[in-house]
Simulated assay, not measured.
Amino acid sequence: MGEAMISAQFLRHVANCMELTGHPAAGLLDGIGVGRELLDDPDGMIPLASFLAFFEQAANLVRNPHFGLHAGRLAGSDSLGPLSFLFLSAPTLRQAFLSFTRYLSAMQQASTNQFVDGPGGATFSYGVLDQSLPHRRQDAEYSLGAMFSLARQFTGGEIELREVRFEHERVGDYARYREYFGCDVFFEQDCNAFSIDAHYLDLPGRVLSSSLHPILEDHLRRKAGDPGGLTYADRVTAYIAARPLDDPPSIADAAAHLGLSVPTLGRRLRAAGTTWRELLHEHRMVAAARLLRDSRRSISAIALAVGFSESASFIRSFSRHFGQSPHRFRITPPR
């Protein structure tokens, strides 16, 4: 598998936000080998690792631990390239989230995002899948902040969030998070996500004509080179990632979500070279690796958090999966 890439247009917004603080971005851009002309190229792509590193370095340079939230607050119709326009031209807020999550992969690889719509409300979740990429806090806070900003623009400011969850530990002032999102914010959680009440989902857009939406969908579908959308293995992985680690879904839950029978889902996963058990195990191991690297939880607490009843079986499973014990992984995580 090649190096994960992301649209250079995403970096353009972050670089512009940095320069609004009075700090030129040229030095950091040179450091990751990106010229200004690439930022303006609608088809330009850069390594995801470079984007994440730039974000963290920019936060340090401007001395703002909340730089990701700052960039999210400033997100607008041109911040995420055609994805911003796709979101803002949707006929309803529900469709805005569904379309965005369907086509993010056209502009950012090695990431997961999902919109789970239930009777009482909905949850949008986002995360970088590659555990070898260590610089992810600013990106996570920006991604949720930008989606909240787009949703507020879409609804004319009517939307309020129920709660926000982040994978990482809190850094900086909690009041800044509370003030921006207007709700409780939790840290060291299973995923980066926010939840909204159901009555907001049918609100119409107030920014762009919905006649643009199918045109933008077609553009992003062709850009992704995937007229049929995600594979079933991709959809199952995203579905698992959006559920609580300590209450994982069953294969019956996933099959019902995808509109399939359990045997049919099993056959389609085997055709893709995997199984339900393998996908669920991979998710638990990836989550455990993240918690070992990014939190101070004990190994026994992490074992419980990812669904193991006791530490010994977790240590054996983790050691087989990664070739080293959880303790050794925490000391020297793979690069």
Results as ranks from 00 to 15, higher is better:
155 T>Y: 05
157 G>S: 12
158 E>D: 13
158 E>W: 00
159 I>S: 04
160 E>L: 07
160 E>K: 08
161 L>Y: 09
163 E>C: 08
164 V>T: 03
166 F>H: 14
166 F>R: 04
168 H>W: 05
168 H>A: 09
168 H>L: 08
169 E>A: 12
170 R>V: 12
170 R>A: 11
170 R>Q: 15
171 V>D: 08
173 D>N: 14
173 D>E: 15
174 Y>A: 13
177 Y>K: 06
177 Y>C: 02
178 R>E: 15
178 R>Q: 14
179 E>A: 13
179 E>R: 13
179 E>V: 02
180 Y>H: 03
181 F>E: 05
181 F>P: 08
182 G>P: 03
182 G>A: 05
183 C>M: 01
183 C>K: 00
186 F>S: 09
186 F>A: 11
186 F>P: 00
187 F>A: 00
187 F>G: 03
187 F>Q: 03
188 E>N: 13
189 Q>Y: 00
190 D>K: 04
190 D>Q: 06
191 C>T: 13
191 C>P: 00
192 N>R: 04
192 N>K: 02
193 A>I: 10
193 A>W: 06
193 A>Q: 14
193 A>S: 15
194 F>K: 02
195 S>H: 09
196 I>H: 06
196 I>R: 04
196 I>F: 08
197 D>F: 14
197 D>H: 14
197 D>N: 13
197 D>M: 11
199 H>V: 01
199 H>N: 14
199 H>G: 03
200 Y>C: 01
201 L>Y: 06
201 L>G: 06
202 D>E: 15
203 L>G: 01
203 L>S: 12
204 P>Q: 08
205 G>F: 05
207 V>Q: 10
208 L>C: 04
210 S>M: 06
210 S>T: 15
210 S>E: 13
211 S>K: 12
212 L>A: 04
212 L>H: 08
212 L>S: 01
213 H>P: 03
213 H>N: 15
213 H>I: 04
214 P>Y: 07
214 P>H: 08
215 I>M: 13
216 L>V: 15
216 L>I: 15
216 L>H: 02
217 E>H: 02
217 E>T: 00
217 E>P: 00
218 D>W: 09
219 H>P: 00
220 L>V: 07
220 L>R: 07
222 R>C: 06
222 R>G: 02
223 K>A: 12
223 K>Y: 05
224 A>D: 11
224 A>T: 01
224 A>E: 11
225 G>H: 10
225 G>W: 10
226 D>I: 00
227 P>D: 06
227 P>I: 07
227 P>Q: 02
229 G>R: 05
229 G>I: 08
229 G>E: 07
230 L>N: 04
231 T>C: 02
231 T>V: 04
231 T>G: 15
232 Y>E: 11
232 Y>T: 11
234 D>R: 09
236 V>W: 02
237 T>M: 02
237 T>G: 09
237 T>L: 02
238 A>H: 14
238 A>K: 14
239 Y>L: 15
239 Y>E: 04
240 I>S: 03
240 I>G: 02
241 A>R: 13
241 A>H: 09
241 A>D: 15
241 A>I: 01
242 A>P: 06
242 A>F: 05
243 R>C: 15
243 R>A: 12
244 P>A: 08
244 P>E: 07
244 P>L: 08
245 L>T: 05
248 P>T: 07
249 P>M: 07
250 S>K: 09
252 A>P: 00
252 A>Y: 10
253 D>I: 02
254 A>H: 05
254 A>E: 07
254 A>V: 12
255 A>Q: 03
255 A>V: 10
257 H>G: 03
